[in-house]
């Protein structure tokens, strides 16, 4: 009697629960790993923080490409409807955006850890875990064709919202505090 709704539920629950598990694992690693505070400096930039702020900004720009191309894929943008390059653009801008965030999160997790000593840092730490959890959930959602149609835009929207929040609590804070510097 209830097998069909149950499997439908589990099809939704599987990517979401794995995503949630990833978020929790990242948070635990950030909390339990002893922060080293070591900075890998990159030539041409004044500090690790500025490198991270610019990488986050690059990811944000790519995320905006993601938002527009996703709307086009779902047919919400008339002029772009049916263009064959939208799909590859969406996939590769997404991969580039995630690749840009990886050096940032590696430094966050390894050198700084999960912190909650002030609201900005707490929100940033939570969003960081949430972002990668949502990213995993979205990737897993893509692997199946039998998930409800609403799940993909919800997961994608969560990833996008997470990244915007991360940028606001890190790069925007950096640029407004220290100025727009390299």
């Amino acid at each position: 009697m209830s097998t069909a709704p149950l499997t439908a539920t589990s099809r939704v629950a599987m990517p979401l629960s794995i995503g949630a598990a990833v978020a929790v694992v990242l948070g635990l690693y950030g909390r339990l790993h002893d922060p080293t505070g070591v900075a890998v400096n990159i030539a041409g930039f004044s500090s690790t923080q500025s490198v991270k702020a610019w990488l986050a900004t690059l990811a944000l720009v790519l995320a905006l490409v993601q938002l527009v191309s996703a709307m086009a894929l779902f047919g919400h943008l008339r002029p772009l409807a049916g263009r064959s390059w939208i799909g590859p653009l969406h996939r590769w801008s997404g991969r580039a955006a995630v690749a840009a965030t990886l050096p940032v999160v590696a430094h966050c997790l390894y050198a700084l850890g999960f912190r909650y000593d002030e609201p900005r840092v707490l929100i940033h730490s939570l969003l960081g875990c949430f972002f990668y959890g949502a990213f995993v959930a979205k990737m897993l959602t893509l692997t199946r064709n039998d998930v409800p149609r609403w799940l993909l835009p919800v997961a994608g929207g969560a990833v996008f919202a997470g990244l915007v929040g991360l940028w606001l609590t890190s790069a925007l804070w950096f640029f407004t505090t220290f100025g727009i510097i390299r």
Binding site: R91, R95, A99, K138, M139, L140, L142, T143, R144
Partner: peptide, 11 residues
Amino acid sequence: QRSPLVTLAAA
């Protein structure tokens, strides 16, 4: 079906 998993693994 598989490319998202490849993306995940690469990340």
